[in-house]
Nucleic acid binder design. Structure first.
Length: 463
RNA sequence: GGCUGAGUGGCAGAGUGGUUAUGCAGCGGUUUGCAAAACCGUGUACCUCGGUUCAAUUCCGGGCUCAGCCUCCA
């Protein structure tokens, strides 16, 4: 039985889908005004893993991850860059897709953009006004009336009195209550706008997600996810908007992934301590980043550092090393024993670190098989690869992975050049000229290329 | 100040009321022309103080420290 930690209940809940055999999941995606950083990568990879595991478990999954393509930051950035909003957002959507492809993140089933759902957004706001959960301010902004929803604060564990007491945002006179939040912003000169019953304007951020999730998945769906920082106010506001407009329940389970940290501090744009995905890809293979992300639990903080990525690289290389020689011929099914154990790990709130430890055990069992052509070796290989697939790992050819160049590679040799050195060394070895053979090996080693003499011949890898 | 969550061996990171996590690094061995890779062996780890218990790192309470949210943020 799959258990998922539900931010709403603050405990691991048994997962019972609304419709048997199906899962509907909405995740708050990116606001596209800059390159994705490792924190964004974590959201993409974590929920990709969740979707993959659901599919592996036999569910029919509908995974929606939205794109916020209209927002204050986008407007500001476009103005700074002196480019159109569409040019800016298109550029960063393309960049985001490159990053997510590199990280082995499968495309969600749907990636709605806010600007293409204005009619749903306006309709939802109208409903909220009709039901007296929202009001139009003197400035023609539309606000949600927080006092009209009694469960406000349930998700974030806050109560409205405390929120008012701790109010740190400057009070806007148009609001009835400082906690009220904007649903529709009246257009300011030079800003993009859409027509609405309250005049030209654009939607607030929170309503976009309510409208798009409802449009894509219906009023009531299984899982809503996103980064921990969205729990309040974004997700709290989404619940208020959706429940008040539809009169139905919203998401059953709320999943929040932990932050990526740098030096014990949250990685964020505002702190300026972020590393973009493409920046890190200069130095590490994409799968190393994915492995790094999955090697800690999705709710734990994840400390970004070169040392930790290097460790992830070593660990992942170990798994690939075990896959090098064994064949997978004549075996179709992964070994049930390992699959069951793997499922038990993942059923416990997606415990990927524990699942990965099982992968290491499989690799060790595989390495113990001296006969690489044995049926057992083939079974273990198939199982390791299969379980890797569920996590989006170990899909590369082992030699390709182990020989890949990276920023830290110091050689500029191609495969032919390396093979020539190896041939030369093999010849020296057969002539028992070990001094020369060692010289060649040391030379390659100094360039970051390691040789291994195996029964199948000499093979190489980049460190 | 309010509300969350966390403190595990050199590092990373799971987990558990009494028994080996796992990985990286280290050390010893097997193997190898020598290496590498691999395998085997190797660590008196659970912030602190009380409490519950036959037994607590694990449960409860206090304290200390750290992080996050309360403002845009994945």
């Amino acid at each position: 039985m799959l258990k998922i930690y539900n931010s709403l209940s603050r405990k691991k809940d048994n997962f019972t889908p609304i419709e048997a055999g199906k899962v509907s999941m909405y995740v708050c995606g990116m606001t596209v005004y800059d390159f994705c950083h490792i924190g964004h990568a974590r959201v993409m990879v974590v929920f990709d893993m969740v979707a993959r595991y659901f599919r592996h478990s036999g569910f029919e999954v509908t995974y929606v991850r939205n794109i916020t393509d209209i927002d204050d930051k986008i407007i500001t950035r476009a103005r700074e860059n002196n480019e159109s909003i569409t040019d800016l957002t298109e550029r960063f959507i393309a960049a985001m897709n490159e990053d997510s492809d590199a990280l082995g993140v499968l495309s969600p089933d749907s990636e709605p953009k806010a600007t293409l759902h204005m009619s749903q957004i306006i309709e939802m706001i109208s409903t909220l006004i009709d039901k007296q959960h929202a009001y139009v301010g003197n400035n023609n902004d539309v606000y949600f009336d927080v006092s009209s929803y009694e469960n406000y604060g349930r998700l974030s564990g806050k109560n409205t009195d405390e929120l008012r007491a701790g109010e740190r945002v400057e009070v806007q006179l148009e609001k009835h209550d400082p906690l009220d939040f904007v649903l529709w912003k009246a257009a300011k000169p030079g800003e993009p706008s859409w027509p609405s019953p309250w005049g030209d304007g654009r939607p607030g951020w929170h309503i976009e997600c309510s409208a798009m999730s409802t449009y894509c998945l219906g009023n009531h769906f299984d899982i809503h996810g996103g980064g921990q920082d969205l729990q309040f106010p974004h997700h709290e506001n989404e619940i208020a908007q959706s429940v008040c407009s539809t009169g139905e329940e919203f998401a059953n389970i709320w999943m929040h992934n932990g932050f990526v940290r740098v030096d014990e501090e949250k990685m964020s744009k505002s702190l300026g301590n972020f590393f973009t995905v493409r920046e890190v890809l200069q130095k590490f293979q994409p799968e190393v980043i994915r492995f790094f992300i999955l090697s800690s639990h999705y709710r734990s903080p994840l400390n970004y550092s070169i040392t930790n990525l290097e460790e992830a690289k070593s660990a992942l290389s170990g798994l690939y090393t075990s896959l090098r020689h064994a064949s997978s011929n004549a075996v179709d099914e992964p070994l049930k024993k390992y699959v069951d154990e793997f499922n038990a790990c993942m059923d416990d709130d997606f415990n990927t670190p524990k699942a990965i430890s099982l992968l290491h055990e499989l690799a060790r069992d595989l390495n113990k098989n001296s006969d690489k052509s044995s049926k057992e070796a083939a079974e273990l290989t198939v199982t390791l690869r299969y379980l890797g697939t569920v996590l989006g790992l170990l899909q590369d050819d082992p030699q390709t992975f182990l020989q890949a160049k990276s920023d830290s590679s110091t050689d500029d040799l191609d495969e032919v050049a390396i093979q020539n050195f190896i041939d030369e060394r093999v010849a020296a070895k057969s002539a028992k000229d070990y001094e020369k053979a060692d010289q060649i090996r040391d030379h390659l080693q100094s360039l970051g290329i390691s040789l291994e003499d195996t029964p199948q011949g000499t093979i190489w890898r980049r460190n």
